[in-house]
Write a protein that binds this DNA or RNA. Sequence first.
DNA 1: CCCCCATGTAAGCAGTTGCTTACATCCGAC
DNA 2: GTCGGATGTAAGCAACTGCTTACATGGGGG
Lengths: 186, 186
Amino acid sequence: MSRPRDAAATKAALLDAATKLFGERGFDRTTVRDIANLAGVNQALLFRYFGSKDALFATVLTTQSRELLEDSPAEHLLRNVLLRMLEEKPRREDHPLYAVLRSSHHDSAADLVRRQLGEEYARALASLTDADDAQLRADLVLAWIVGIGVLRTMFGKEPLAGADRAEVAALVTKAASVLLEHTEPG
Amino acid sequence: MSRPRDAAATKAALLDAATKLFGERGFDRTTVRDIANLAGVNQALLFRYFGSKDALFATVLTTQSRELLEDSPAEHLLRNVLLRMLEEKPRREDHPLYAVLRSSHHDSAADLVRRQLGEEYARALASLTDADDAQLRADLVLAWIVGIGVLRTMFGKEPLAGADRAEVAALVTKAASVLLEHTEPG
DNA sequence: CCCCCATGTAAGCAGTTGCTTACATCCGAC
DNA sequence: GTCGGATGTAAGCAACTGCTTACATGGGGG
């Protein structure tokens, strides 16, 4: 009884619950029992379908960011990521960055995934400039996005936390364009 | 035998070990046994002198923040803070920032860092511009500095983590000057 | 119809965690 | 000296963790 026998729905429920809890509490403070309860699923199924808590975390990160990266052409990536980060009610679970920030891992598969994500964002941003140090410039822009997320959601720093999205986005894109502009011929 | 009977030294050893480990691993991934071992102290003493792991964490943060004081002339503040954030090893006073970032819950800890960030840095940075939204601009610059620290020390993101300090500082100051410049009369 | 396996469940295992307890031992006050 | 509290030690407890196992069950293919 109880659950409909539907593996796909069960997996999805687990992934949703994990996404929410990892984003809100971080990896360590989220237990597999919490995830299973929120999903309304027996916790043994979590291991059947995802293998381990680490693997589930990795799956959460990759699926989340794939969507964002694929939906945004490079020239709009900065703005899109920024706006997502600046949403009125910061739905923490919405952005994998929050899960990453609240879970600092120096071992395990999750660390690898985090590295890959950073590379993907940086590569996309680096394509916006033809400067010699494009990669470094991209890292700096990425750092800015991360820092804004940290101050807003983890520290609640005012006035940034309560600032108007458009205003913030305008200031950041203006300043970041100094780093990401193409050199004009002539 | 073993330890000299010196409560003050024991407390100090525990506090030092806790400071180091909380900063490196965060609250959750640091165990009281780790702290006691690093301090060379029986773990029962940790509870005798600090009450609980939570209380020890709070003590670490408050103790450190009292040490955090840096006076730089406002015009050089950005550069000084930047260079400091780009140092190879984070300073002792920088640890509360990372300790909090690596520790997912602890609201009081977040309050502490927020207050420091606001009063120490943001106010000074805000004095660098006369724009209406000086505070917001200062927060954004501060967010950048924090983000750079996160990518370097927590994520080890390359090429940023291994980049030349001066080069990074040059790029950041150039882009940040867009936000912090004074409006020219006429 | 029946069999079989994908799906779901209940229970528990081994390791770790924060914290406590019961007990030695030292040292200063008297 | 000796008494008592401050200091240090060893052991263990109860709860929680990720994960596994042994077992029900239902539905689709033969």
